[in-house]
Amino acid sequence: MSPESEEVRQGNPPPAGPGLDAAPPLSAAARAEARARFEQSITEHLDSLYRSALRLTRNRASAEDLVQEVMLKAWRSFHTFQAGSNVRAWLHRILMNAFFDNYRKHTREPEVVDQENVGDFYLYEKAREGAALSASGNPEAEVLDQVMDAEVRESLEALPPQFRAAILLADIEGFSYKEIAEILGVPVGTVMSRLSRGRHLLQRELWEFAKDRHFVRGD
């Protein structure tokens, strides 16, 4: 290919961002520029990606490997990424796809299908039941104070991955229903039912940690 034709191709739209494999060949300068932009995006969202990976894989080494895999995949399609789009959502989409692909390959467990909704406010109701046994002034609030951060993480990690994914995207990473639907590739209604079911399951797990202390204090 002549240098002219390369120049022409580079000048052609859509110039959303240069890539590695499928994208038109780049000059050294353009490639360096793309690499710098890419590195900046990765650095900016690395903590968020790592946290999500850690909650999904439940293991530091696997989380690091998953983040690396996400980065390699993201670079390969970086040229298709439109400037101005939501980079964090895009990276999370790649993360979720990579995680669930690996998960399906390595587990024999059947995927949990969405189930009908059950009581949403389990922990609150339990805390109120306990309130009758407690002498303290604000037992519902105390239940929350008694749960340790590590126990919250453990409770979250006990959930089936589909529900865990929905909760971490909504409650920890703060994505909207619409963004979560795009990240997970499911309809918004499914996002809402997974959140509802997931939050219920999470509250049951948290209650397991809270109840002993709660009733001990209520004696």
Partner: peptide, 20 residues
């Protein structure tokens, strides 16, 4: 509480270096 329990964690420096 759920958010706070998880947002305190950061990517380890070794990972940052490996990616760079």
């Amino acid at each position: 509480m759920v958010r706070r329990s998880c947002t305190g964690e950061h990517a380890p420096p070794e990972l940052k270096e490996r990616l760079s």
